[in-house]
Design a protein around this nucleic acid. Structure first.
Lengths: 208, 208
DNA sequence: CCAGAAAACATAGCATTGCTATGCCATGTA
DNA sequence: TACATGGCATAGCAATGCTATGTTTTCTGG
């Protein structure tokens, strides 16, 4: 009945946007389509405008984060796994700092919230497993502890990604997580070991 | 030898910008000077451009934060005071959420860093007093613990101010701080009491 | 007291931004 | 095979930040 959209163009634009974000090129409507052989109108047919493009890019960021979370294998030690998830969170943010900034920029709408919730759910599950393994007290709310872990990770990484603090600041994450886990009932000795093992998954950049 | 700048114009523009930020009006070069009887050039003579204006606004934000910190009276309980400082931090961010967003937006330069360091120093001093009072272990680095407290506050408040999480999320701050303080040696019972007393200073908005 | 100069200030115009109006063309359907 | 629908290209719009240029004001040196 009519011409159909080509999804390849959508991903082409998104990848180009992500690339320009990495290379610190300013992303404008015209600079985005320059070089490609699509016109500015493509941005409107596929995203409804630049705002929609930024939103799609934000979604892409959460998708990548979720993908990275799935690479964290489940072990017999759920506290280790939880720490590893947080380490993966930091690693993802460090690998794509500009994308991370975009993800938590202004204008969080309902769809973004769902994406954020989906990634948060990974943490919730890990907390739940730790609670089932009786590492955490029975009264512990998995969602609460997941949010607290998230807040620690996000607080550190956003202070680092936005400039105020140097990358080595992220080393504070492990002891902070350990303090948090101990406060909800984990044995200090075991906790330290679990966090250390989980934390090893994070590879920090050299230039810090 | 020449005409001199009128500092009143500078503060007029800054206050107007802060007001427009609160009322969610888009701040553009022309909209900023509209209504006032200064021309667009004033923005360039006083700030060197819109970027400079945003930077000045960021500085203003840190100044307000520092002013709020000074309202936190020193008591005999340094852990309580430290908690009260963090509560003041959250309160300030909640009172001026848009200004807070601007403060931690992109483009942190050296001057912004100094302003941030100055406010961080308040926390460092509080930690130092707590350490002197032997609430924290001797090996505790005041700067480290201050940064960790900052990260908790910033993580929570930025997740709230940017949308993903509801305001009541900030309630997590007190237990997180307590967990952190206990992890560096404070007695759990005393810590809980101190944090509770310091936390009371925060007045959360009703609509949460 | 008064020229002169330097800096604040006003006006106008520039390139660039995101967006929309308009027409063309490809493609799936009847 | 005709046609209508929606993707696509072009051109142009208002608004943005900024700069060039002239005017006015005010401090200074003689």
């Amino acid at each position: 009945m009519a011409r159909t959209k080509d999804p390849a163009i959508r991903t082409l634009l998104l990848e180009r946007a992500a690339h320009m974000l990495r290379t610190r090129e300013p992303i404008t409507l015209r600079s985005l389509v320059a070089g490609t052989n699509v016109s500015t109108m493509a941005v409107y047919t596929y995203f409804g405008g630049m705002d929609g493009m930024w939103k799609a890019l934000r979604q892409e960021g959460f998708t990548r984060l979720a993908a990275r979370f799935t690479t964290v294998a489940e072990s017999a030690d759920p506290v280790r796994d939880l720490t590893a998830l947080v380490a993966a969170y930091l690693g993802n943010a460090l690998d794509h700092p500009d994308l991370y900034r975009v993800m938590f920029d202004a204008s969080f709408d309902l769809e973004d919230l769902k994406a954020a919730d989906a990634t948060l759910e990974h943490l919730v599950q890990a907390v739940r497993r730790a609670k089932d393994a009786e590492r955490f007290r029975a009264g512990t709310d998995p969602l609460d502890l997941a949010i607290q872990s998230w807040a620690i990770a996000h607080g550190l990484v956003s202070l680092v990604a936005n400039g105020p603090l140097p990358p080595r600041t992220l080393d504070h994450c492990a002891p902070m997580l350990a303090a948090l886990f101990v406060s909800v009932g984990d044995d200090p000795g075991r906790c330290r070991s679990s966090v250390e093992h989980g934390w090893k998954r994070l590879r920090l950049p050299e230039d810090r």
